[in-house]
Design a protein around this nucleic acid. Structure first.
Lengths: 118, 118
DNA sequence: TGAACACATGAAGACCTCTTCAGATGTTCC
DNA sequence: GGAACATCTGAAGAGGTCTTCATGTGTTCA
């Protein structure tokens, strides 16, 4: 227990262009409803493409396209099992990134838009 | 001291369509190099639009457009001070979301793409 | 009031993204 | 080998995104 975020090194003072691009590309993988639902489904256990398509209510082809992108970014892995291919989150960093993103976003004061700007 | 992620409620079993859309929209705000650099700059202290534009090396107009989006999502606030408008992260959830996203993504095994798929 | 400054805004264009459709690849079982 | 199944892949089109340019709004100071 207690291996949360407190033992980390401080975040970089300012992201250089390359890091910004990498982080942005990875975050973009979480930035669409379809992929988000695919990933949160996988967050609770590996499963095949067919099951995934049923769970998130998308066409199988669409799911496959998104899995390709997620694979290319190293966020998920696919392993053949018979005629199916079983997908899973790549590692615990992906799981935590998901959990923490959902947690923080759902605790934001959304819609608070009144500012000095107008 | 110790108010990290360990005291949280468990993440939802599966995101419903509405939550997925909300989370995706917010994550999309972090999913571009320009906004990411704007936000990480603000992560280390509030500043005006002009300073921001200098720091991230973008045109003032482009920065302004992105700030509008970030404002609409409740991620940043702008307050007038003289002729400048000073922007800051909305709250600590935004700061932590940023820190944690950068942390996890920079610790991913990126580029590991060999799979059962071919 | 007018000039200079700081920022916001609208429109337009290049570019990227997501889904669908049709077909290809690989696997199992007979 | 052939049929059925599970998944991948390429092309194409609708829709969205980000930047730039030109202009508008609000503030300070003389």
């Amino acid at each position: 227990m207690g291996h949360g975020i407190e033992g980390r090194t401080t975040p970089p003072a300012q992201l250089d262009a390359e890091s910004a691009a990498t982080v942005a590309a990875t975050l973009q993988a979480l930035a669409t409803p379809s992929r988000l639902r695919i990933l949160t489904r996988l967050r609770h256990g590996a499963c095949s493409v067919g099951e995934l398509a049923d769970a998130v209510e998308m066409e199988q082809s669409a799911v496959s396209h998104q899995l390709r992108l997620l694979r290319a970014l190293g966020l998920v892995t696919g392993t053949r099992q018979g005629r199916s291919i079983v997908y899973a989150l790549y590692d615990n960093h992906v799981a935590m990134l998901l959990d923490e993103a959902v947690y923080h976003i759902e605790h934001l004061g959304l819609g608070v838009t009144d500012d000095a700007v107008g």
